[in-house]
């Protein structure tokens, strides 16, 4: 039964992808991309990857759709017909290339272990140690969180820095420096009374849920990455319904930028603190008297740093895009 659902979801993914190739209306393409993200999230649930599904549902179906839509409103909704004279549109050539590459890759899969095999190299190398010893060494139930924040804390630090850098990059590229006096912008959703009231009810719940995901990440699916994205989405909702000017009052530009840096700083300081106490960088055993307690502290603060950075960078990205869009003309 499970493999039946499995095959259906995979077929739906392929169908959606083919539809994305065919459709010329970029608005519809964006919606299809959101569906694609949601489908892959359901697939991840089926594969026992609840943490990943969580993230993909928030990012793939939510934030990425929103960002692409904001960009579309600046660049135009329709793709130009491809076969205008003088274009170097060669679908046959591209198709041949793609088919050839795909065939080679499929040939390559012949050497891979079959799906679900317990003796595949992926399952036998370092993972048994994580699964067997983390209960004694770290003592939190969610192995994903302990691997993320403790065993591979170094990697995660790198990822957080990448996210931070991307945020800076977006700011550098499209931040509107000219502080044009805001022309008494009417929030585009002002007449949607029902929408505004329901959102007012929901926004606090979303924020609390974000905090729950942040601090319950050691015991169930969750953690800084998911929590940051969920937390940021509450601010997106507010900005979309009440207008950017109102949202700017809640979320001060300078503060969010400082917070984004603060998250990375918090992560790094935990590592440095371990060094000061005589351990290696990010070796949480040295943070407190006994090892397990130190690990708990380390993971808590590191996840907090991740959450702060992810939430702030997402808010920065969305607000920068929307401000740019307002500056470019239509306030809707």
């Amino acid at each position: 039964m499970e493999s039946f659902i499995h095959v259906i979801i995979l077929s739906m993914l392929v169908t959606t992808a083919i539809a994305i190739v065919k459709v010329k209306d970029l608005f519809a393409v964006t919606m299809l991309a959101g569906i694609y993200g949601l489908l892959s999230a359901s697939f991840f649930v089926l594969m026992d990857a609840h943490d990943v599904a969580f993230t993909e549902a928030a990012v793939g179906a939510g934030i990425s759709t929103l960002l692409i839509l904001t960009t579309l409103s600046m660049t135009g909704r329709f793709e130009k017909a491809a076969d205008t004279p003088g274009s170097n549109y060669k679908p046959a050539l591209a198709l041949a290339l793609v088919t050839l590459t795909g065939a080679l890759l499929i040939y390559g899969t012949q050497d891979m272990p079959v799906f679900g095999a317990a003796d595949a190299p992926v399952q036998t190398h370092v993972v048994p140690r994580y699964l067997n010893d983390s209960a004694a060494e770290i003592d939190i139930p969610n192995v994903v969180a302990s691997v993320l924040a403790s065993y591979r804390g170094y990697d995660t630090f790198g990822e957080v820095v990448v996210i931070f850098t991307a945020g800076i990059g977006v700011l550098a590229l499209i931040m509107s420096t000219a502080s044009k006096a805001p022309v008494a912008l009417r929030a585009s959703m002002e007449e949607h009374v029902v929408l505004r009231i329901v959102s007012k009810m929901l926004i606090p719940l979303i924020l609390i849920f974000g905090l729950y995901v942040q601090f319950h990440g050691e015991y169930g699916p969750g953690g800084g990455f998911q929590a940051g994205v969920i937390f940021a989405s509450a601010f997106f909702l507010y900005a979309m319904l009440f207008g950017l000017t109102a949202a700017r009052k809640v979320v001060n530009n300078t503060w969010v930028q400082a917070l984004a840096a603060l998250g990375v700083l918090l992560y790094g300081s935990v590592g440095l603190l371990a060094m000061i106490n005589g351990g290696n960088f990010l070796d949480y055993n040295f943070l407190a008297q006994d090892d397990v307690h130190g690990q708990h502290m380390g993971i808590l603060f590191v996840e907090l740093g991740v959450g702060i950075t992810v939430a702030s960078v997402m808010i920065i990205i969305f607000f920068t895009f929307s401000t740019r869009r307002q500056r470019d003309g239509d306030p809707d």
Partner: peptide
Amino acid sequence: VFVLLTGPTAGHALAK
């Protein structure tokens, strides 16, 4: 509760 709040609201917003 969340579904009952958001579903009809989304429908209403779309129709409007």
